[in-house]
Every structure is written in C-alpha cells, then in structure tokens.
C-alpha cells in the first residue's frame, strides 16, 4: 500500500500544544512591547518637552493604566461605570455591523456570480463598483439615513446599509477573481461529464472561489465595524460606539481616557468580527493546510 502523508497523531498533538503556547506568548509579548513603547515615548516626550508631531502630555497620551482605570469609573457621579455603557454601545454597533456585514457579503457574492457569467456586463459594471468606493462615506451616510427614514426604515438598519456599502466591495472583487481561478483541468473534466452551467457553478466554481471569498470576508469583517461607527455619526444615531466617540470627543480635554477606552472597545469589536470569520473558515474550508491562512 502506498505511504500516505499524514502526521503521526502524537507528534501533531504535541506540536499543536507547543504552537498554542507559542502563540499565547507572542500575543502577551506583543502587548507588553506596545505598552513599553507607549509609556517610553510618553516619558521621553514629557522629559524632553517634545512638541512635534504633537505635544506629549496627559491629555494627548494618558497613561495606559489610566485608560484601563477609566473603564471602571462611573460616567456620572453615582452612575454605572464606563464599561457598562461601552458594553451596550458595542452590542448596538455590533448589531449594525453584523447586519451590514451579512448584507454586504450576500450582495457582493451574488454580484460576482452574475458578473462572472458575462464579460460584457463585467466591462460595464466593474468600473462603477470601483467608483462607488471612492465616494466619501460621510457624504452619503446622511442621504441613506434620511432617504430610508422617509420609507419608514429604522435608523439602525440604515446604518447597517451604510456598513454594507463598505463591505460588499472586497467580497465582489475577490469572489469574481475566485470564480475565474478554476483549474483548467477541472473545467475539462466537467466538460467531459457534459455538466451544465448550474452544476459548473455550484460544484466547481463556487467551491474553488471559497479561499478568495474568505480572504475578502476578513477584510469586510473589520470594514463593517468601521462602516457602522462612521454611519452612526451623520445619522445622529444614539446608543452606539460612533455616538460615544462624538460625545467623548467633546470632553476630550477633561477626560481623554474615556475616548481612548472607547477606541479600545472599537478595536476589540473589529477583532472579534475578524476572529469569527477565521473560525467559520476553519470549519468550512477543508483544504490542504497551506491554503488556510
């Protein structure tokens, strides 16, 4: 019987454990280095009275520990701590981003499937898809919110639409490329079976394109969070992280740590979305390990 190239289980288990520990160590070390750089720059900047590119002081660069402490401090005397507000803001923005992500992914994917079937359509439509992304989001966000608002659409759904506007683009472009990246031998095989368009699409082109789709979804995952945050601002929608950013911006000179804490939460939300896509990719994409990033 021919030899097969499967790792011996014991070695694989030890390897996975070792890799896990290494990854955890690298993560902690990365955090420690960032902390050190921040505090080091702060200390040096304040001692040397640097004014370029910005004046280093407690407002522009608060201590990391004061940012972390801000999570625990009440926003108003006697009220709940900041983390309570930020948690609910993150849930609200997360809901918008998730809806926007899903909408953008579905629209981008279907658009790519349609465009993959016609060169003429591709030539005609793709330039407009590219152009759509050069329009400033801040300019169209109020139009979307107002326009959909007159149709009776809830504001948070309008924000999701704005997030989708940002997320459909990478999915459409990458899926289109993926659908065309089919092995010519596999196409010849399908032809030998006289497979129809539909079978060709669902049994060959779409599965072949999945690694490309997931690369795009990773970009879209973080973009959807950004889209939701930016969308809230001109929509004057309260209750999300975008609102919190605008609000804390006004009190920045007094309580800079609140804004920084909000930024951290925004980043965590984006990372959470990204990791969800990676997790789904691991389950769906049963490929040779080198194809799974």
């Amino acid at each position: 019987m021919s030899a097969i190239a499967v790792e011996r289980p014991r070695q694989a288990a030890v390897g996975a454990l070792g890799r896990g520990a290494l990854r955890a160590f690298a993560f902690v070390a990365g955090l420690a280095i960032l902390w050190g750089l921040w505090e080091g720059y702060r200390w040096l900047g304040m001692r040397e009275h640097w004014t370029w590119p910005f004046t280093v002081n407690n407002v522009n660069m608060p201590h990391i520990h004061s940012i972390l402490q801000a999570f625990d401090k009440p926003l108003q005397p006697g009220g709940p701590p900041l983390r309570h507000y930020l948690f609910h803001y993150a849930l609200f923005t997360g809901k918008e981003a998730l809806a926007g992500f899903a909408l953008g992914a579905v629209v981008g994917f279907l658009l790519a499937v349609v465009l993959a079937h016609s060169t003429l359509l591709r030539r005609g439509v793709v330039p407009y898809i590219v152009a759509s992304q050069t329009v400033p989001l801040l300019a169209i966000a109020p139009m979307v919110v107002l326009g959909l608002g007159t149709k009776g659409v809830t504001p948070w759904i309008s924000v999701a639409v704005i997030a989708a506007y940002l997320t459909f683009f990478p999915v459409a472009i990458n899926t289109l490329r993926g659908l065309h990246s089919v092995d010519p031998g596999a196409l010849e095989l399908m032809r030998s079976y006289a497979a129809g368009r539909w079978d060709l699409l669902w049994r060959l082109r779409v599965p072949s394109s999945l690694p490309f789709v997931f690369s795009a979804l990773k970009i879209s995952a973080t973009a959807s969070v950004i889209g939701a945050i930016i969308g809230e601002t001109p929509a004057s929608l309260q209750g999300g992280l975008g609102y919190a950013i605008v609000n804390f911006n006004q009190y920045y000179s007094i309580q800079p740590a609140n804004l920084w804490a909000t930024i951290i939460v925004c980043a965590l939300l984006g990372i959470f979305f990204f990791l969800m896509v990676v997790a789904v990719e691991r389950i769906v994409l049963k490929r040779a390990p080198e194809y799974v990033a």
Partner: peptide
C-alpha cells in the same frame, strides 16, 4: 456519458473526500 477520462493530473477536488470525488459524476 459514453466515456470516462483520466488526466495526467488526478484533477481531484480538494474540498471533497475520496468518496465524494468518486461520486461527482454520479451526482451530475
């Protein structure tokens, strides 16, 4: 479907198991 073909490259679908690859023409 009067003939089956085998190429120099096996042209197997990475995302399908051995059994699923064999059943591809049967599904079609």
């Amino acid at each position: 479907h009067e003939y089956g073909i085998v190429f120099q490259d096996a042209v197997l679908y990475d995302w399908r198991t051995v059994a699923k690859n064999i059943s591809l023409p049967l599904e079609l």
